[in-house]
Design a protein around this nucleic acid. Structure first.
Lengths: 318, 318
DNA sequence: CTGTTAGCGCGTTCAC
DNA sequence: GTGAACGCGCTAACAG
């Protein structure tokens, strides 16, 4: 493990000054072609790589964006993350990814670390009960994903549209007894917004509304099914595909496969296990990309206004 | 957005020298308590955070470890990642996570970036067909996960033991016609090692071996089931829980629920959808932790020998 | 115990 | 076109 070369070593080897090497590295036009070639040759020969630490210190920008997610095992989050990373890589940025496990305390700790790292920006995956005010020191170089915010740029999912599309689908099929399984109101998006869209649809179309809530887990949905359905039930719409999987399993066990199932998230597993179920593609991947693009744009040109983007969704039928 | 304070600002504000502030920051004992308190007060008051870029440059170590994974959406990988991250955070390291999507080319590009970032070490999640030689510049500050290597420290899963445990379980139940669904031999671990363990068990116990291979996907497993089983089949062991889910679904459709199912990976979904299936917990989370610990140990004390660790596994029955 | 000094590797003025 | 000199924020070595 030999000590890595510095820009000065290259300069000496090429018989030029430090700054000339620096210019070559940064594609500065003011270098004679022959000199450039000579320097480049030395660089290639030793495959010299300029230190980003030094560059970061000098330029006051690290080329790193901090990404704070709640849970890497979440399908929505890791899908968005993949889209986001590709966009960042393409622009020469790296990501410092940190996981909060839904703990506001960990989020705060991570933000502190990211501040010391001089990250150029932050992408924050919102979760139920998170405290966005901790992002203040980073504004306007941050984007929040999956929740709305008045204070920061945001990319959110179309919770309202997703539920409405599933409901409209069943409604168009002539179904009228459509029940809904959601999660705690405390959750702004998956909990409150989606339940609200359900009620709203029922009102508009004069449908009998019947809604239950449970924990966001397969088992909870499974158990909640019995108290949600009755002999009239024609369809169950769920606030997420995880819930839909739980409900579908229970309905299968009960032999109630006459009941239609709708979910949100377009999870592979739901389509595979219960092909008859419908789901809504929320566009996690694209939302991730969009969040990254938004952040990068903010880094380039200090923004005039706070931007909000709602990711379009679309129904996926068998 | 006011310009962040530097250690010099703090020194002036506290009426001391730069290095005294530095000593306070690094818990150097040689500071009078009263002075320390005075400096700390100023630090707290302005919630000053020392720049890691500068520190990295000075210390020639960035406090960052590069983590290269194949696919964030993989259950095994993101589970291991979570374990790994917690361990790194606890020791004050951050992770630069990069995704290869199984592309060796991307892996190489990521490694180049990580080298310029002066990362202190690398944790590389092995995938089928990956070229470990690209890690050479980082040795001995790297650990590979999920595959074996003679050249680098590694943490691998007990592929042999996992298959053997499932087989032994079925064998103990008196089952003798146990078939196996695997993936391409080209994959060293999930493909070759697990198939080999199957054959080996059959030989030892004089069981008729019947093995098929398919792509690693729910649908492929679903379709492969028909040609794998026959009227005698008593159990199907799968090289992964994904395959097991595909097979189980097909068997359910066929009404062949007399056939026992065994998988590897202890995936939540398998246990929920098919509670009668058995699976093996490979210890992804712990393997991730262990990989991080191994790397950190190597960073502390330059290692004498290349360490290899096989993560113990255990059967999970209903 | 504490202040002063000298770099770490690089980019960016300035002169030449 | 090119090189020398300076400074980014911090830590280590040396004085006091």
């Amino acid at each position: 493990m030999t000590k890595p070369l510095t820009i000065l070593d290259i300069a000496r080897l090429a018989g030029v000054g430090k700054s000339t090497v620096s210019r070559v590295l940064n594609n500065d036009a003011r270098v004679k072609d022959s000199t450039r070639a000579k320097v480049q040759a030395v660089i290639d020969q030793h495959d010299f790589l300029p230190s980003k630490s030094a560059r970061a210190m000098r330029a006051q920008r690290s080329g790193v964006v901090g990404v704070i997610v709640a849970k890497l095992s979440s399908n929505s989050e890791n899908t968005a993350l993949t889209g986001l990373l590709n966009t960042l890589y393409a622009r020469g940025y790296d990501a410092a990814i940190m996981e909060t496990q839904f703990s506001q305390q960990k989020a705060q700790a991570h933000l502190d670390v990211l501040k010391r790292r001089n990250v150029d920006g932050i992408i924050f995956f919102g979760f139920s009960g998170c405290d966005l005010s901790a992002l203040a020191p980073f504004a306007p170089h941050c984007v929040v994903l999956a929740i709305d915010s008045n204070d920061y740029a945001s990319v959110s999912y179309d919770n309202q549209g997703a539920v409405t599309q599933v409901m409209a689908h069943f409604y168009a099929q002539g179904l009228r007894y459509i029940h809904f399984l959601g999660i705690d109101e405390h959750d702004e998006t998956t909990g409150r917004a989606r339940a609200h869209a359900y009620h709203s649809f029922c009102d508009r179309h004069q449908l009998p509304a019947r809604l239950h809530r449970c924990e966001m887990s397969l088992h909870a949905a499974y158990k909640a099914t019995d108290s949600l359905i009755d002999s009239q039930t024609q369809a169950v719409v769920c606030a997420s595909d995880t819930l839909a999987l739980g409900v579908a399993k229970r309905l299968q066990t009960l032999g109630r496969e006459d009941i239609a199932i709708g979910g949100i998230g377009n999870h592979d597993m739901l389509r595979f296990m219960f092909p008859r179920a419908v789901s809504v593609e929320l566009g996690y991947h694209q939302a991730g990309q969009h969040a990254a693009e938004l952040l990068l744009k903010q880094l380039d040109e200090t923004p005039t206004e706070i931007t909000h983007w709602t990711q379009p969704c679309h129904l996926v039928v068998p």
